[in-house]
Each structure stands twice: as C-alpha cells, then as structure tokens.
C-alpha cells in the first residue's frame, strides 16, 4: 500500500532553494533518507510531517492532502514524528511527558492511555526512569524519550530525523530491533547519516542532495552504483573521489579505478559516495567553467 506519494515538492527560503522537484513514494516498511548536510533532509521530513508547507508540488499521505486543514489533521492522526532536535518540559517526568503527548494525540481514555504510555516507555527501555524528571535524564535517554513520544498511539507513519544520535552501541542495536519490528507493519521514514543503519534496516532508500532526489531504490541498488569503482591498493590514490586507509593497512578508493586495480565489493557507503561525490564534482566543474 502506498503510504506517502510526493510529486514535484519544492520549497524556497528567500533566494535559497531548499527542495526542488522532489518526487518519491513510501510504502510499508522502512525507507532510509540519506544525504549530505544541508541536502534538505530535515526540510523534507518536516513537510511530510505537516510541520512545514511546501511551496509547490503535491503530497498525499495515506491519500490525505496535508495542504488542507482537514487533510493535515487526518495525517497528524496517523503520524509519529521524532524531530532532529526534540524539545521537552524539563520539569515533567518521563511518564508525564509522553502522557501529555498522548493526550495531544487524542488518546483521552485515561487507563488506555496510561497503558499505551507504559508500553512505549518500555519499548524504548525507559521503564525504570518513568518517574524521573526529564532534566535528570542523560542525552541518550532524552532521545529515547522523544522516540517514545513519537511512537505513542501506534502511528501508521513514523518519521524519524536522525534518531540514533546520542545512543550508545547497545541502544542503537535495540533501536534497530524496534524499528525493524515497526517496519513490518508500518511505514517508517528514517533520516540518518549511519549507512549501516540503512543497510540493516531499510528496504528502500532515497538519496537527497542539494534539494533534489538523486536516487530512489533499494540499498543493494545504491551499493551497486559503485560496482567496478571501488578498489584497494597499498598507497593513497590522488585521483579518487575518496581514498582512505583501512584497518588492514590497505587503502580503499572510490572513483575511476586504474587499469588492473584490485576491485572489491562495494558497500552502500561506496554507492552513496559515488552518487554524491560525482554530483559534487560535476557541480564544481560546472562552477569552474562559469
């Protein structure tokens, strides 16, 4: 089932183009949103999450049009959103805060709501801190609390903007488990810089760069973009798009390999670098020509 259908989305901040002709489709499952800093990922997530109206294009979320008040309300009733920089009331306890968000999600039956709040707090591993004031929580705990607030009410569309920031490795693994479970039944849009999260969680991936969609496909297809363009050697290659020394002592390169190079299997990161690096290089060449 198509959960989100975006066609030609555009947004400008004054003279700056944040998004231009963004078209993509989200279905049940986890879709990763990748892109360099400033690519427009957060802007796009905010538009899909109804926090920001687009200047142009059409957006349908479960068939609803968020540009109209009734459509927006309908979307919000189906939505869980974890912003990049979530906010809290520091004097609330963890339970009170999620309970408050649950009320704002129209969960009005007290007992049911409390059960639901307890469920999501347990799901994010904050069971034992439910009575703690938010000001006493660590950064990672606050991030998990924000995730709980996003998940309360069992939304059909979950939008997560860099949710693993501040999580330790164990919490990140548990987070993957949680999102993977969720992705079996719901539509999850996950913005992240962690390519391993994308590889392990996402069925689909969208790459955004300078406000435009550069790629839409599976993680394997994204990795495939670098097929034949990743090689290793003993020394650094000046002509490569990217070149770094790995733990084995060999240098790994992405770019146009020299003849006879020892090609290796590309990763999603290589595909991403090939895509974004080539675009950046093309842009730099175009800029130089001007």
């Amino acid at each position: 089932m198509t959960a989100v259908q975006a066609t030609g989305l555009a947004l400008r901040y004054g003279r700056t183009t944040a998004l231009e002709d963004v078209t993509f489709t989200l279905r049940t499952g986890v879709t990763g949103l990748l892109g360099p800093n400033g690519a427009g990922k957060t802007t796009l997530l905010r538009i899909v999450a109804t926090a920001l109206p687009a200047d142009g294009g059409t957006l349908r979320v479960f068939g609803h049009d968020p540009s109209t008040p009734p459509g927006r309300l309908a979307v919000r009733r189906l939505l869980g959103y974890l912003p990049q920089d979530p906010g809290f009331h520091p004097s609330f306890t963890a339970f009170e805060f999620v309970d408050y968000v649950a009320i704002l999600k129209e969960l009005t039956h007290r007992a049911t709501r409390h059960t639901e709040v307890a469920r999501v707090l347990s799901a994010v591993g904050l069971d034992d801190r439910r009575r703690s004031r938010i000001r006493t929580l660590s950064g990672g705990m606050k991030q998990r609390l924000a995730l709980a607030a996003a998940l309360v009410g069992d939304p059909d569309l979950v939008i997560l903007d860099e949710p693993t920031v501040g999580l330790d490795p164990e919490q990140r693994l548990r987070f993957r488990e949680l999102i993977a479970d969720l992705g079996e039944r719901k539509t999850v849009l996950l913005s992240t810089h962690q390519t391993e999260d994308v590889m392990s969680l996402c069925q689909e991936v969208v790459v955004l760069d300078r406000g435009r969609v550069r790629f839409e496909g599976t993680p394997t297809e994204l990795a495939g973009l670098a097929a034949g363009r990743v090689w290793t050697s003993a020394a650094r290659e000046a002509g490569a798009l990217a070149s770094w020394r790995t733990g084995t002592g060999l240098h790994r390169h992405v770019g146009d390999p020299p003849s006879g190079a020892a090609l290796v299997e590309p990763s999603i990161e290589d595909g991403y670098l090939t895509l974004v690096g080539a675009a950046a290089e093309a842009s730099a060449i175009a800029g130089g020509a001007r």
Partner: peptide, 8 residues
C-alpha cells in the same frame, strides 16, 4: 567530496 579539494 572531491579529490581536488584543498584544505588550508
């Protein structure tokens, strides 16, 4: 990220 990038 490009190979021609120079870092001051």
């Amino acid at each position: 990220m490009t190979a021609t990038m120079t870092v001051a």
